[in-house]
């Protein structure tokens, strides 16, 4: 017993240490630079969203002009056909995707991860059934699934988050289930099983730590997708009530009003979406490179 406790401690320490070491060691490689760049942009968006009331020069829902005006020193992103300041709307609009991603990721993780753990660890019929269900959802066009559920649930931040969460449950489930199933085959888990340690202990002490590593990767992958899905829902008119500034909705309204004459009210919210999603994608690209040993360059043979 004593030896297993010691080795578990060592394992945990070395795992965290190794992850940090890999991460710091990579900060000058392409992967490391990608992660850092992405993190800076994402943090910047979070700061903008939190400080929106102080950053935005105008009230986002007020008509401060009589109609669409092109970008000027007064309105750097111009005003939309209703006369609202686009810069203020873009600033306030950062709150929606960040809130939706935060809520929906927690929900997806809270449902997908335990199911994945159980499915991967116990296997059997339950596993096969869950995999079939999850794969069916996964194979279905995400936006279409979101559209259907959103049409039933109706508007609002929480409802949209629920919809998005549902779409990404299979992503969390799949990665965690496969990871658990492979970790289970490893020697130290088999050994602790042979020592007849309680299953819960085996699960929390030996299976969870390595699997937890993959959560940031899944998050950064699905977060960018979630933001795009949310924007798509808003563009189709299934997002939020009109009084909440929302990038997708702004693009859609600009299109309906003939965007040729007020391109700026479509271009800037779109650029905001791209910046945020690309930043998240950089993080996931980088993390994937750093954590995926298969692709790490073979130095010698």
């Amino acid at each position: 017993m004593a030896t297993t406790t010691v080795s578990a401690g060592l394992l945990r320490r070395s795992m965290v240490g190794r992850a940090l070491g890999i991460f710091w060691g990579q900060s000058r490689t392409v992967a490391g630079v990608l992660v850092w760049m992405g993190l800076v942009v994402v943090v910047a968006f979070v700061v903008v969203a939190v400080l929106a009331p102080w950053i935005a020069p105008y009230e986002p829902n007020f008509s401060v002009q009589s109609g669409a005006t092109p970008p000027s020193s007064q309105h750097v992103f111009g005003t939309n056909p209703i006369g609202q300041d686009m810069f203020s709307r873009v600033v306030w609009g950062a709150r929606v995707p960040l809130a939706v991603v935060a809520i929906s990721s927690i929900l997806s993780l809270a449902i997908g991860a335990p199911l994945g753990l159980v499915s991967g660890y116990y296997g059997g019929l339950l596993d096969r059934f869950l995999v079939l269900v999850m794969d069916s959802i996964y194979a279905f066009p995400g936006l279409l699934l979101a559209v259907v559920v959103a049409a039933v649930l109706g508007q609002g931040i929480v409802n949209v988050s629920l919809v998005i969460a549902l779409v990404y449950i299979p992503t969390y489930f799949r990665v965690i289930r496969n990871h658990v199933a492979s970790v289970k085959e490893e020697l130290f888990v088999e050994a602790s099983d042979a020592l007849a340690l309680p299953r819960m202990m085996v699960l929390t002490r030996y299976v969870l730590p390595p699997v937890a590593q993959s959560i940031p990767v899944i998050f950064s992958v699905s977060a960018a997708d979630a933001i795009l899905t949310q924007a798509g829902l808003s563009f189709l008119g299934l997002g939020l009530p009109v009084d909440i500034p929302d990038w997708g909705l702004d693009v859609s309204r600009a299109v309906q009003r003939g965007f040729q004459t007020n391109w700026w009210s479509a271009v800037f919210p779109g650029l905001a979406i791209i910046s945020l999603t690309t930043a998240l994608a950089f993080i996931s690209e980088g993390l994937n490179d750093i954590l995926n040993p298969l692709l790490r360059r073979r130095d010698t043979r």
Binding site: A231, G248, G270, I273, T277, L280
Partner: peptide
């Protein structure tokens, strides 16, 4: 060249498609 095409791919894949369509139209 690798970094450039990876970045291109990442930006392309993470572009909101409806917005990209509008820009193409413009």
């Amino acid at each position: 060249a690798d970094v450039a095409s990876r970045l291109t791919a990442a930006v392309l894949y993470n572009t909101p498609i409806f917005w990209f369509g509008i820009i193409m139209q413009l």
